[in-house]
Design a protein around this nucleic acid. Structure first.
Lengths: 201, 201
DNA sequence: AAAATAAAAACGAACGTTCGTTCTTTTTTC
DNA sequence: GAAAAAAGAACGAACGTTCGTTTTTATTTT
């Protein structure tokens, strides 16, 4: 029923969000001015205020309906694998690749934490929790003996491990010796699956 | 020989850095004004420029000689343990506890990434590398069969895993169900040591 | 040890910009 | 033709920085 013709009003609103989004992920919130947003949206400065009450309102709208989280996490649900090992390996590669397709994600996330003290994180998490938990259920139902780990802890460890992999890959990738980069993702997967120790556990 | 009397000049310089540090970790760089810094340092606005050429110069000085990294990482060298397992367990707890004692660390790090695009990270890393690598050497010399993992990858996985634990603990600690918090650190340690799978690896 | 002198630091007003927001007018949209 | 949106000038406040002056500090000369 919807999806037909986005009204003019709606199109301008989206143009503003587009412009603001691109500026904010590049320079942060405080360093982005309403004049830049206006120019990016092809609008006069005052025109923005017909759509948003304030600068902060623009940012809130971005967090609420443009956060890349909402695109990245669902991707994990489409990951395949018969065994736990296979699944984890695929999921790790998929997630890191997907993060690579959304370089904005990191910037937006950090901007929110730094400039808004992470006040939107609970909202983000509330939305993401229902997306993430089915994944945990799926993993525990796959072939392969898994240690008894509470599913939330499992998911947190998975996301944390490979998210940190991605961040460090970006941040220090070029500053580091080559041997720290090569195939590092597969090492991470192995550690996550089997630990750093050899032998029974 | 030194350590005697910090000259007056040096004392004001430190006062400026103190004030700027506290403001920046709380509000970020762009949101911190030179007037706030001056007031915090008990100085007139113009006085700052007798010690620093610009606002950015103040930030650079903070990164270069006040970054909490330099306090946190060396702590790991004092961690004890006869076996790999023991050592890793102690190191994880020590690091998380130490991060807890430096809540500023996270803010400063993120501010640098967001507002300066991480341009100081290579410098940070260059300094930290010599501190970190001996640690990796130590681990590999302990009792306990370790899988063959390049030491840099090992360190990166360790730091990433427990750093991400700390971040998520802070960010979503209160927004999450209790069972995701309880003893989660020990689960992380177990996963790091033994992986999520049961059996030989 | 005291006084004189040169250098450095602190002051605080002021500069030119830029900021977020408001307001009135004109134009577009339905 | 009524209502909404765009325009753009204008507002006051805040920004980083500069500047001339005064005060403090450190050094040298009596």
């Amino acid at each position: 029923m919807p999806e037909e013709a986005p009204t003019k009003r709606e199109r301008t609103r989206q143009a503003i969000l587009d412009a603001a989004y691109n500026l904010i992920v590049r320079q942060g919130y405080a360093a982005t001015s309403m004049r830049q947003v206006a120019e990016g949206a092809g609008l006069a400065l005052g025109g923005i205020y017909n759509h948003f009450a304030s600068k902060e309102e623009v940012f809130r709208a971005i967090i609420e309906d443009r956060h890349p989280f909402y695109q990245i996490v669902p991707i994990l649900n489409s990951v395949e694998g018969e065994t736990v090992e296979e699944f984890v390996r695929n999921a790790a590669h998929t997630m890191v690749a997907e993060l690579g397709h959304h370089p904005d994600f990191l910037n937006l996330m950090l901007t929110e934490i730094v400039e808004f003290k992470g006040e939107h994180v609970p909202l983000l998490f509330e939305r993401m929790f229902p997306m993430i938990m089915p994944l945990a259920q799926r993993i525990t139902s796959l072939d392969g003996d898994m240690r008894q780990i509470p599913p939330p802890v499992l998911m947190r460890a998975f996301l944390g491990m490979f998210f940190s992999f991605y961040i460090t890959e970006i941040l220090i990738g070029r500053a580091m010796p080559k041997d720290m980069q090569f195939n590092a993702l597969d090492y991470f997967v192995d550690i996550f699956l089997h630990g750093i120790l050899v032998g029974r556990n």
